[in-house]
Design a protein around this nucleic acid. Structure first.
Ligand SMILES: [Mn+2]
Ligand SMILES: [Mn+2]
Ligand SMILES: [Zn+2]
Ligand SMILES: [Zn+2]
Lengths: 144, 144
DNA sequence: CTCCTTATTGCGACAAATCGCAATTACGAT
DNA sequence: ATCGTAATTGCGATTTGTCGCAATAAGGAG
């Protein structure tokens, strides 16, 4: 339920940056939620504890944590969502019609990454994709 | 150089929608540019010809054209870009460090799509992905 | 060509996100 | 424990994107 075990502060300091109460609160919010959060949701959650924490600071903290790859940022069905980056990556299949998203382990992406490195000298970081498409229910017109 | 050959108007009307001068101007702008455009760039380009065309209308036209899949909308390196959807899809490998993007034909995605359909009943539409990672130059610290 | 329906636009208000800059403060060094 | 540097925050202004609603106009029917 908590991310005590993961030494976020250590990782941040090791790179010459600083752990701050503001950044900690953002991490806490993401951890408490456990899943996807829109930026606005993070702002609201954080301000429960610290009502005067500035909105811009939350946005900057999210950007910062994404740059360090401690947090993922993904556009899913028109809205941007943030999520704590777990050891084991996962992805989502998002239906363009009904909007529902199913999780996908992305096993098959390994081959892609290998090929991109070999053929394009590009080391892909595929931590949290959102692939768009049409789900089974919608394809068969079974969704109202 | 032009998209006359493609019957955008026909496709739009066939679905019960309407071709309008505003939508045509947006398509013209995307066609003239030929590549990626931020929404603001489309607004500016369109207003060269039609200075009083409203900003909201351009945003709505872009959303509309994306919904019909005549235009792709993609987040690349932190900014959202729009591009005319071509017959032959293409993708981009975006370096997280230097920001440079190389094109990728996405040949290998066919296997993924097949597998997603078979194993997850999901018909993926992979028209214009932007995969994040680190390019060869940056990986070897050859970029300043 | 004219009429009618309703998809679409323009507008103004609003919300979300970004930015520059001065004030603050984390934290390594002493 | 104190100091100094520079990373970070808060603030206000600005830009970017969204929304509801009344006015407009695309295009099919007659
Ligand atoms: Mn997720
Ligand atoms: Mn492209
Ligand atoms: Zn669906
Ligand atoms: Zn690079």
């Amino acid at each position: 339920m908590s991310h005590d075990e993961r030494d976020f502060a250590g990782q941040i300091r090791q790179l010459g940056y600083r752990m701050t109460p503001q950044r900690q609160l953002v991490l806490d919010a993401l951890c408490a939620q456990g899943g996807h959060m829109a930026a606005q949701e993070v702002v609201t959650a954080v301000q429960q504890h610290s009502p005067f924490l500035n909105r811009a600071t939350v946005y900057r903290a999210l950007d910062f944590l994404c740059a360090l790859q401690l947090v993922t940022r993904t556009e899913m069905g028109g809205q941007v969502v943030y999520e704590l980056a777990e050891e084991q990556p996962h992805h989502h299949l998002v239906c363009r019609v009904c909007g529902q998203a199913q999780e996908w382990d992305g096993r098959a992406l390994g081959a892609i990454a290998t090929q991109l490195l070999a053929e394009h000298d590009f080391e892909a970081e595929l931590h949290h994709l959102a692939l768009s498409g049409v789900c089974g229910r919608c394809r068969e017109g079974r969704n109202p």
